[in-house]
Design a protein around this nucleic acid. Sequence first.
DNA 1: TAGATTGTTAATCGATTAACAATC
DNA 2: TAGATTGTTAATCGATTAACAATC
Lengths: 215, 215
Amino acid sequence: MAKSVSDSLNGHTLDRLMNYYHCLRNYSANEQEGVISSTQLARMLSLDDSQIRKDLAAIGVKGLCHVGFGVDQVMQTIGQVTGIAHRHPAVVIGAGRLGGALASYAGFAEYGLAVVALFDHDPAKIGLTIGGHVVQPLDQLERILKNAHVRLAILTLPADAAQQAALRLVNAGVKVLWNFSPARLNLPPAVFVRHEQLFVGLGQLFYHLHRSHSS
Amino acid sequence: MAKSVSDSLNGHTLDRLMNYYHCLRNYSANEQEGVISSTQLARMLSLDDSQIRKDLAAIGVKGLCHVGFGVDQVMQTIGQVTGIAHRHPAVVIGAGRLGGALASYAGFAEYGLAVVALFDHDPAKIGLTIGGHVVQPLDQLERILKNAHVRLAILTLPADAAQQAALRLVNAGVKVLWNFSPARLNLPPAVFVRHEQLFVGLGQLFYHLHRSHSS
DNA sequence: TAGATTGTTAATCGATTAACAATC
DNA sequence: TAGATTGTTAATCGATTAACAATC
C-alpha cells in the first residue's frame, strides 16, 4: 500500500507543513471563515505565497480559485501526511529536568506524540511520579517497549550514557530516536536520529547580540 | 571597530562552526596530535571536506599543507567569532520543568551562556531554589536585568503569557530572545528571536517511523 | 621527490521566488 | 464581467560539491 502523496516529502516541506498546521490551529480558533488564502498564510509565517501553494499541491490539497483553501481540509490532510493525526507511543529515557519536561508536556499529545513511560537508571528516582509518569527502572525497558509497541524513543541522558542506551533501544525495536543528549550516536543506518543540539543555536544568538551592540 | 571576519557569516556557517567546536572538544580530549585535516573532520561530521576548508578560511584560520589545521587554533578562533569564548549573561523566564532544565544545564557555561536569574510569576514558586537559582518574582525583572547587563533572555512560558513577557523584556533592554514557547512573538524587528519549536521535529520523526514500517 | 593536504574557483544541485495563464 | 486567487512553469538565488593547481 504505497501512499503516493507523502513519499516525496523532504524535511523542509515537512517542517513547513507542521508550521502551517500550528498556525491554522490558532487561526481557526479566532476566525469563523473556514477558508484561508495562500497570501494570508504566507504573511502570517513570513513566507512566499507560492511556496505554500506548492506545498499544499504536493500533499494533494486543492484550493478554490477566488477563495483560497479550506482550513479544515488543509489541517486534516497535513495531519494525515505528517502522522500527527495518529497516536505514536514513545518512551523518554532519562528522568532529569529535561526528560520530565518532555514527558509531561501536554502539548505533544495534540501533535500525535504519546509518552507511555519514563525511565531512569538512578535508583533514587525510580518510583517517583514525574508529570504523571512513574519513573521506571531500565530493566523494564524491553518489556514495556514490546507491550506498548513503542518504536520511538526520546533520549535525555547525559552524553556518556547516551550511546549505550541508544543501542539498547534499537535492539528493543526502536526505529526513530529523538536525541537531546550532546552525544553523537553511532547506530545502524536504518535508524533515524534527530539530533536536537540546543547549544548550536547559541552561535546565532551571540552573533546577533554583538551586531545589535555595534549598530 | 569593524570586525571584518565575522561580519559575513550566515546562520548555516555559524551552526557548522558550533558543530566543529563541539566535535573538536571531544577530539582533543582523546587525541594528542593537536592537528586535524579537513577530511578527518568531515568524516566525523558527515560533511564535505571542502565545506570545512571554506568555513575555516572564512574565519581566517590558515591550514598547513600536508598537515591539516591546528586544533587549538581552530577552537580558539571559532570561540572568538561565535562569541562562545565570552560570558553572556542571560535570564530564564518561566520556572517550569523546561525553564529549570535550561537554567541548571551546566553545559551551557562551557559555551558562553551564563544564566544569572530565573523568574516566574507564580507566587508558589518564588523563593524556591531550582538548579542553584532562587526563583525571582517578575517585579524584580528590570532591576536584575540592569544590574547584570542582561541582553539575552530565554523564554519558557506557556503560549498565552509569552507575548506580554517578551515585550516587557525588550523594554528592559533585551536584544535577543530564545523562545521555547509555542507562541509566535510580535516584536520590533531589531530584536532577534530564535524560535525553538520542538513540535516541528515531530513531523520528520513520524515520517521516518512510517517509512521504516513499510520498508 | 612523492604524496598528501590546503585554498579557491567552477560546476552542480536544490530550494526559493517570480511570473502568469487558467479559473471561478 | 472584473477581480482575486490558484496551479504550475520558468527564473533566480544560494548552498553544496567537485575539481585541481599550489604548497610543503
